[in-house]
């Protein structure tokens, strides 16, 4: 197995199209590192949800605020840390969208998907920093 690794540290404005460019770069790097399609889908989805949360809910789309993204890809795992400049939040306060009372609510599923697709997810500080990783070829049952 190759032990090549790739890392990047990027700062973007609160702009979803900039987030897409990062997504594309991460996807290319994962493909270069020969990650499988299933892992790539999971990572892309989790990063998409986390970036949308940071830009929309964290920075409230404020063009004066930025999002910092640092990620690392090794043969074994993908790590990413996303920091926004918003007030943060407590993940415990987010209602469980799988509860009967919430299941038909049209939003609030991003965090659930991040947790479902990544191996581990942690929030830091006031809740404006999320770090997560996924083991390659993760055997977790979704």
């Amino acid at each position: 197995m190759s032990d090549t690794s790739f890392s990047a540290d990027v700062t973007i404005p609160s702009d979803l199209s900039e987030a897409r460019l990062i997504q594309d770069r991460i996807e290319e790097a994962l493909q270069s590192s020969a990650y499988g399609e299933r892992d790539i889908f999971a990572i892309k989805l989790a990063v998409e949800e986390a970036l949308v949360n940071a830009i929309k809910h964290g920075n409230q789309m404020d063009p004066d605020k930025q999002v910092h993204v640092s990620y690392q890809i090794t043969a074994e795992r993908f790590d990413v840390r996303i920091t926004d400049e918003g007030p943060g939040f407590n993940p415990e306060d987010v209602p469980d969208p799988t509860e009967d009372d919430n299941i038909e609510r049209p939003c609030g599923r991003g965090l659930l998907l991040i947790r479902g697709f990544m191996t581990d997810v942690q929030y830091h500080g006031r809740g404006n920093v999320v770090s997560m990783y996924k083991l390659r070829n993760g055997q977790e049952e979704y």
Partner: peptide, 16 residues
């Protein structure tokens, strides 16, 4: 697609 089906499964929307 199988991957997208996981999105429905994780969110339990496959139940409704």
């Amino acid at each position: 697609a199988k991957d997208i089906l996981d999105v429905f499964r994780i969110t339990k929307l496959d139940k409704i």
